[in-house]
Design a protein around this nucleic acid. Sequence first.
DNA 1: CAGTGGTCTAGACCACTAT
DNA 2: TAGTGGTCTAGACCACTGA
Lengths: 251, 251
Amino acid sequence: MALNAQSPLPLYHQLAGLLRSRIREGEYPTGARIPSEPELARAYGIGRPTVRQATDVLVRERLLERRRGSGTYVVEPPERVDLFSLAGTLASFERSGVPVRTAIVQRARRLRVPDDPEHPLAGRDAWALVRLSRARGKPVLLEHLWFDAERFEGLDRLSLAGRSLSQLAHDHYHLSAERADQNFRVTEAQADHAALLEIAPATPILLVKRSVHFRQAPDAVFAELRCRTDQLVFAQTLYQDGDPGPEASHA
Amino acid sequence: MALNAQSPLPLYHQLAGLLRSRIREGEYPTGARIPSEPELARAYGIGRPTVRQATDVLVRERLLERRRGSGTYVVEPPERVDLFSLAGTLASFERSGVPVRTAIVQRARRLRVPDDPEHPLAGRDAWALVRLSRARGKPVLLEHLWFDAERFEGLDRLSLAGRSLSQLAHDHYHLSAERADQNFRVTEAQADHAALLEIAPATPILLVKRSVHFRQAPDAVFAELRCRTDQLVFAQTLYQDGDPGPEASHA
DNA sequence: CAGTGGTCTAGACCACTAT
DNA sequence: TAGTGGTCTAGACCACTGA
């Protein structure tokens, strides 16, 4: 439970991780106030600036929120964009009462990715799998995913059902997604995709191509998402980076 | 040029602004190294932690990049998502050699926004305007924009042509966009929209509805973007918030 | 090797919130 | 008024980069 000053991992990072898991495990539930900065500093025998550095990380992750004069609080559900799917969207639907169920259509198999100028893994070995998500009994999202075979050694032996793939990448491979490039186009569904999505062939659907970048490995994951926007509206929230917001308003 | 310790604006924020304008004005061009942290601290008579706090802001804005042992450098063009349009996309096309031209289709006029559950300004007064963007001579993006009339008092008297609307909001109204919610659907173009986009009526297009939130004013801007993805692929980059990245790799 | 950013301490004063 | 977060100082040691 204590922090290790000898560890190569900085103290503020250790503390951030500690607080993060306490929040996830419910010790500090949503809306709760975490111990004050001086308290944490005393408790862990570190300086207050180091405590702030740790909570800074979590504030930027939108897990914590500071209220001057009052305390630091655990914030409402993250509502983050999940870079591995449109799961951010789907999760928000779950909350609104519409359950979303995701099933594996095709288990992970290793293959050589064929040539495709838009596919960052083209010509390399990858694990490929296909998932289908349903809401209100209707299929709404078909995902084709490719994972760099070297980076994700042994992916086929992991159980993927019902697990967040970004969580999996983090826990099993110590990879954290940093950035994703994606683009949007309207296309007509191919016959096989249409069948899975239960629509007529050539029905226009939303096609999103997404490339996920990790700090240690750019372009390690690629995904094609096909969305039935007649059944589910796909949403996201964008945050403008930068200013944590100064205390005073400008004159 | 000096910092003012009496100002209600924090020192680190003043310094961040100073550095930001020097970068914009070309004093520190792309790729250049800015003065070291100790140098800046000496030059402005402040502590090094305060200098770091200032450059932290710019690092999060992706304007600066730190290289340990070497220095802090001005980073390649921002490539940010412009919350007022798909201009991030369009700008990147500009760089790739495809010029994009935007014209006002309908000048700003004040109106009462009709009822619409998806329109955050419904029932309130707003400035409404319409823009059309072309690439390679073909229309690719039709934007309907609504600005809260109270927040954007006098918007009709400003010249909007060729100006970034987020720059305008910042310069004239001291509003900086913080967050945007948006959703994506495939729809069939209405007759009037189809005419402007030079496509057949009922052609499927991408419809993006976006609500822009400011620190001081949530939901002050709303936009409907209609995109011809057959001509231009709409792209964006998402950044995972959080970790600035610790120094050491984990064991 | 000198200089850089990365981390950390031990204080300090302030504006603000809750009571 | 006591406690909170917001800002700031003046140091320190370290790992790393580049000449």
